[in-house]
Design a protein around this nucleic acid. Sequence first.
DNA 1: AAAAAACCTTGGCCTATGTCAATAAAATGC
DNA 2: GCATTTTATTGACATAGGCCAAGGTTTTTT
Lengths: 212, 212
Amino acid sequence: MDRLRDIAIFSHLSDTQLEKLKKISSVKKYRAKEILFYEGDEPVYLHVLLQGTLKVYKTNHKGQQIFLHQFYPGGLVAELAHFETIPYPATAEFMSDSEVLRIDYKALEKDFFKNPDISFEIIKSLIAKHKILIDVIQKEVILTAEAKVAKFLLENEELFKTLKNTQVASILNLTPETLSRTLSKFKASGLIEVGDEHHIRIVNRDRLQEML
Amino acid sequence: MDRLRDIAIFSHLSDTQLEKLKKISSVKKYRAKEILFYEGDEPVYLHVLLQGTLKVYKTNHKGQQIFLHQFYPGGLVAELAHFETIPYPATAEFMSDSEVLRIDYKALEKDFFKNPDISFEIIKSLIAKHKILIDVIQKEVILTAEAKVAKFLLENEELFKTLKNTQVASILNLTPETLSRTLSKFKASGLIEVGDEHHIRIVNRDRLQEML
DNA sequence: AAAAAACCTTGGCCTATGTCAATAAAATGC
DNA sequence: GCATTTTATTGACATAGGCCAAGGTTTTTT
């Protein structure tokens, strides 16, 4: 269980403290598409993603998923809900087979929260989430579909090569149709090109940038 | 300057610490409609609102304000930007004549951040902001115009009496036209009533609730 | 390699909300 | 209390982006 030491939030703990932590936590495996928690559930454990990917989304009035964020290994999941003991504000679903460290929250709070290193790590984690939420707002409320796609192209040119368009569309909370039409428009105005292998190449970075 | 003691984040400090704090901070007055900072500005001070109201908004592609949040006295403004030394992610504008405590951030960091009480208060403040952002997402991305109005009615029945409809509309990021039409619809279906004095009264709380 | 499934593209249509404009009503100033 | 400015209401119209359907591709399964 030296994996605990690799997790940022616990990296400064002493061996004795790690031992204690081991006692109040356990590892659980999940398969792709399983749900870690639903919006509205009461939190019991603090989860740390050890392996795999986890997406977090809210559901709107028409039942569509509004993608908020994707977690990678090391991520501390949903600490807000714990601190405030409020229900989870979103749903978390595994995108691939994954492993999660489950920590008994109450015990953690009792034994570890006086530790200034831990509270500093928690501040860091909260700030990271804060940024994510600001980005979500930026993406969902401020940007048009075109701007979303332009931004994603500029920031994730590589990802476009590996992800399917439906996946990109769902990250951007757009329909595949809209994404397809937007990309066609960009091609037509010479902002991007499609080589063989169907890979997209950005031709005019500056003009893409201007769309934001 | 005993007002410092009334501010939650500093309430646990000793007299000596408060003295130190006084040295690195100053009070500045602003008039309604003045700007505390613009989106994109580099932060220098940590601001605490002492008096008045401050609204925070982002601007979308068409130059409209997207209202994010309103601060009341005691609020710690924009700590995220400081921790991460990133530019402010939104614009802050005073809604009434106000007073702000400006704290030299670098000095604060040096002298006070080892203090566990302070870091706990910062965690609390971050969590509060986190909640606000989740609410913004809820409001802007998940809810329809009808649901926004229903929610606002349920949660702020009193405010409807004091605020003008344009003000409510701008809090909800709706046009006054849409707000007016939505309220008419609610009246027509007997969810609300308008008495004399133009005050709105909720008639059927449950059915309003269902719209969320 | 054939069949099935998943994905992409394109067209047509729909809906929620914004925009513009005109008028009515209310609030404010003098 | 009248005149002016600010708000509220209503109608007609515009628009972005979703929804549905159909045809063509690509990928996966067998």
